[in-house]
Each structure stands twice: as C-alpha cells, then as structure tokens.
C-alpha cells in the first residue's frame, strides 16, 4: 500500500500496525472461504445494500406528457432509462445509447434533446414530452398522420425519434426547404433509409400549415 502515490492519509491502525490489518483481512477472507455458499451470498448482498445506501436515490419530480411524476432515481440513471424502465414509456428507443442516432429524442420544455445523454436528476421540475404524448386520445398528431401517409418508415425503430425531431424541426422554423429539412433532421439516423419519405412527410405538415 503506497499511500504516498495516491496522496491519501493512511488509516490509523495501518500506520501503527500494518501486520494487524493484514491479519484482519486474511482472517475475513478465510472465514468467507470456509462459509457455506448461501451465507457468502447473503454477506455479499448485505455489502451491496450498504454500497447502495451510500449513493442514495434522489427525488425526481417532472411532468411527463402532462402528468406529474414523483420518482426516486439514482443520479446515474438517464432520462431514457427512467422513461422506459420506471414509467413504462417504451416509445422512446435506445438505439446507440451514446447520442449518435437520435432514436431517444424527446422534448424537454418544448426543445428536442437526446434522452440517452440526459441525467434524470437534471430534469427535475421540467416538462417532458415523449412520442406517447403527441396524440390527443385516438386522434394522431399531424406528423404521425403524415409519416403514415408518406410511408416515412420501414422497420419503425427510429420512428418515434424521427417524429419528435420532425415536430421540433417544423416548430423551430427549420423546414422551409428540402435541404433545410435534411440538415435539421441529420441527428436522426434511419438504417432502412426512409429519408425521402420522411422529408415528404415533414414538407406535407409544413405546407399544410397545421399547428404542430
């Protein structure tokens, strides 16, 4: 144990008697080695609980698709995982999980963002809209209708992200030409290559002048 290199203060008993620490550690290891496996399992779980306690979960209050949600989350949980695992809103997709594909696109306070790179705790007090929040009851959102009309998808995996991005693209005023739509939809990758039809769907909504 080279405490110098890590620039940490050595523990008291280590300083006084490193041999005693060594003996304590080895006897613990021996005890674990000799114990029945069920007991070891229980001990390990106990340790896990203790570790978990150190990193307490944090409260998270956010409005998701118009409903207030009060949750308890780990600081490391991404908004995408919270939506999918805790709220069962599985429309937002985990494509790459590294901010490269756009399949997880949601709106936070009206702005499109990547939920896979957003820590849930940082969304506290904000409003989130996912693909599930676009339709009004049975009435689909105009962008959803347009994607169906223009066949804006094949396998459908990227579609929720495409539609969330497309709605934002029109709202932002970035859908005035095919070139502009392509540029401002570049953060959403479609491996089936449905791009021409996605562009048509967005142009249709834009030209239709409907409120999105």
């Amino acid at each position: 144990m080279d405490s110098k290199n890590h620039n940490t203060t050595p523990k008291e008993d280590e300083k006084e008697n490193p041999r005693r620490t060594f003996l304590k550690q080895t006897s613990l290891l021996t005890a674990i080695a000799m114990a029945p496996s069920a007991l070891v399992k229980a001990a390990e779980n106990h340790v896990d609980d203790k570790i978990a306690d150190v990193f307490e979960k944090m409260p998270l209050k956010m409005e998701v698709n118009g409903q207030l949600q009060s949750l308890s989350v780990e600081p490391r949980a991404t908004l995408l995982d919270i939506l999918r695992e805790q709220l069962d809103l599985t429309g937002s997709k985990k494509g790459c999980d590294y901010g490269q594909c756009g399949a997880c696109t949601v709106h936070i306070d009206g702005q499109r963002v990547l939920s896979c790179l957003t820590l849930g705790v940082m969304v506290n007090g904000k409003k989130v809209t996912t693909i599930e929040g676009l339709a009004k009851g049975d009435q689909l959102h105009p962008m959803q209708e347009a994607f169906i009309k223009h066949d804006g998808f094949q396998c459908g995996y990227c579609t929720p992200g495409q539609i969330m991005s497309a709605v934002a693209c029109v709202r932002e005023g970035h859908a005035d030409s095919e070139a502009e739509i392509r540029e401002f939809m570049s953060g959403n990758i479609c491996r089936c290559g449905a791009y021409p039809n996605i562009v048509k769907a967005i142009q249709d909504v834009k030209e239709g002048g409907l409120t999105v």
Binding site: G102, R112, L114, S165, S186, G187
Partner: peptide, 8 residues
C-alpha cells in the same frame, strides 16, 4: 453536432 445536441 445535431440540432438535439446543440439544444443541450
């Protein structure tokens, strides 16, 4: 980047 990333 992309519009989503620029928003963050």
């Amino acid at each position: 980047a992309s519009p989503q990333l620029r928003n963050m």
